[in-house]
Design a protein around this nucleic acid. Structure first.
Lengths: 164, 164
DNA sequence: GCATTTCGCTGCTTCAAGCAGCTACTGCTT
DNA sequence: AAGCAGTAGCTGCTTGAAGCAGCGAAATGC
């Protein structure tokens, strides 16, 4: 097969969303096993990513309303995954923090995947690893930017609809 | 900074889930814009991936019950994203097919992201592209395998819980 | 010191998903 | 050929997550 550059790009364009879909399905399966909504897992991930945060902040990050997040945190707190701490500097605020020991119980489910992953990565050269990291970071940046763009502008950036 | 291999792997282990989270949030934002549940988008993706399929098959792929999928397909059909075709070979079955023209309306939302992505990819060498494709395919395979493992075995593969 | 804004919480409503049971149909067995 | 177990998809019913709008409390601007 003559793998031209166009073929390669096409293959990548196909492989990418499929990869993400597979990851999402995996995450859903984990959530099912844990008997908790995917959103909750998602929220824990967000907290691990941004650190302790108020309800508002968390709501913005995961794209939900504060009301919904309040109850989401209720669930997580009841299950022991997070703690609510009052903010001494602002007595309205509540800072949500993950409870690492408990979160480990979730992480455990990702271990088999992580193992496979380590194996895969072990065969790569250092420069390949660097390349991957850079690729992912940049992609993440794009996704973040487009997410906020979508949330603020609404529709995709003035997609030229035939002659505009 | 002395980027040892361990550092690189650590960076990758951090970058990966964050990348996926970002992608997921993006997808949620798209779904919100379209005013449809994320699951529905997800299902469309699955159909594009596996081609026309019966309700059962689709249910298995996206990890839902047939009952839920029936109604999911109801929604998609009403909105014109898919069509139900009777299977002449088996009159119990219903084959669900995407309606490409209509699905394009969803794809449009991914365009800005796709554009950024094309830009990013344009700077890569052919071998880097090959590497990426391979990386993604393998990762997808792992995710699929672990997903089914999780769904059949339940819990992660007999995680040695301290002395078992 | 008062008005405005922000923060998180709480009814209420909506709607997606699971569950269980149903009918229609297949194909296997005898 | 007839019966029968298994399969495919659909339909009530129930549960529960999320949005919305409105609330009191606290901070901030003037």
């Amino acid at each position: 097969m003559a793998t031209t550059r166009a073929d390669l790009v096409a293959a990548l364009v196909e492989a990418m969303p499929q990869y993400i879909s597979a990851a999402v399905r995996y995450q859903i399966a984990v959530a099912d096993q844990l008997g908790m909504p995917v959103t909750d897992i998602h929220a824990i991930g967000a907290l691990l990513e941004i650190g302790p945060a108020g309800v508002r902040r968390l709501a913005d990050v995961i794209g939900m309303t504060t009301g919904a997040v309040t109850r989401l945190v209720d669930r997580l707190e009841r299950a022991g995954f997070v703690r609510r701490e009052p903010d001494p500097a602002d007595r309205r605020r509540v800072v949500v923090q993950v409870v690492p020991e408990r979160v480990a119980d979730v992480s455990r489910y990702y271990e088999p995947m992580g193992d496979r992953w380590q194996q895969q990565v072990a065969t790569y050269t250092d420069s390949q690893l660097e390349f991957l990291v850079e690729f992912l970071r940049q992609g993440r940046g794009s996704a973040q930017a487009e997410t906020t763009a979508l949330r603020t502008n609404g529709r995709p950036h003035a997609t030229r609809r035939r002659g505009a």
